[in-house]
């Protein structure tokens, strides 16, 4: 029979390990970015600018009919870039819009958004009335969120993180800031692995911790140990930077190669955004 205390300890261990696995998978996997596809072939600068344009247009449009083409565009681009539609839809259409639906739920009702009633119901003596303006507003909000999330996911999964960071410099972000962020990103994986190894080592030596208190101690010790090693490593990394000529003002590689295809893509993006933006403001 399983000891309930074991379950509690397993809960801590499994939570930490699952969080680390998610972190590694979600932020550090570049599976799709390394594939050959349409979006992967674009210059990261042009791709980022075009997606920013799309995002601004989606956020500024107030019609579901006009936002929908952007969602359709996302699906086409995902297909052209070798991203399995099932994964893409799961990631973009299920969780985040679902959460946004919870946020927008109160605006459905007449108490927040007055207007023509669509449906009413009675629960424990309280009458709830869903109004048409409330429903329209909620649907628009969810569609807008789903489309924006799809655009961001498409950009991030089809671009190597190092290139995305490099693009920040094109927008005038200081090199020191970009270097710091890129180093955080670089060492995130290392420390995630370190924490994972510590947990495995603890488990191999003491097995399943039988007391909740012991489990808490293991986590606290793990945090302290990781902090110490992080501090030590940051000093050594700084030494490695100095050794290669760093004097406080980093200089980083920033070379990109734009092709006619990139310019054509940007032109298409501008035309799509301008026409839908114009249509949205003349409706």
């Amino acid at each position: 029979m399983t000891n309930p205390a074991h379950k509690k300890h397993d809960f801590i261990g499994r939570s930490v390990l699952s969080a680390l696995a998610f972190l590694k998978d979600a932020t550090l996997s570049e599976e799709y970015a390394n594939r050959k596809g349409f979006l992967q072939s674009l210059d990261p600068r042009f791709k980022t600018i075009s997606f920013l344009l799309f995002l601004v247009t989606v956020v500024s449009l107030k019609s579901i009919v006009l936002i929908s083409p952007f969602y359709l565009l996302c699906l086409i681009l995902a297909l052209l870039s070798g991203i399995p539609l099932r994964n893409f839809l799961l990631r973009t259409l299920f969780f985040i819009p679902l959460f946004s639906l919870f946020i927008v739920l109160p605006t459905l009702f007449s108490i927040v958004t007055p207007g023509e009633p669509v449906w009413s119901f009675h629960v424990v003596g309280i009458t709830g009335i869903i109004t048409r303006p409330g429903l329209d507003g909620a649907v628009l909000f969810v569609v807008r969120i789903a489309t924006s999330v799809s655009l961001v996911v498409l950009l991030s999964v089809t671009t190597r993180h190092s290139e995305l960071l490099k693009v920040l410099r094109v927008f005038g972000i200081p090199q020191l800031f970009v270097l710091t962020v890129s180093m955080c990103y670089r060492y995130l994986y290392l420390f995630a692995t370190m924490v994972e190894n510590i947990f495995t080592a603890v488990k191999s030596r003491v097995g399943v911790v039988s007391h909740q208190r012991q489990g808490q101690n293991v986590v606290a010790w793990n945090i302290a140990n990781t902090w110490n090693r992080t501090t030590q490593m940051s000093e050594e990394v700084y030494m490695a930077m100095i050794s290669r000529g760093y004097t406080g003002e980093p200089r980083l590689l920033s070379k990109f190669h734009a092709t006619p295809k990139d310019w054509l893509w940007l032109l298409c993006a501008v035309v799509i955004c301008a026409s839908l933006f114009y249509r949205g403001h003349t409706l």
Binding site: S162, L165, L190, M233, V237, M239, A240, L252
Partner: peptide, 11 residues
């Protein structure tokens, strides 16, 4: 791991 602090080998 100390020496390789950039996000890619090239950098």
């Amino acid at each position: 791991d100390i020496q390789l602090f950039c996000p890619s080998v090239r950098e």
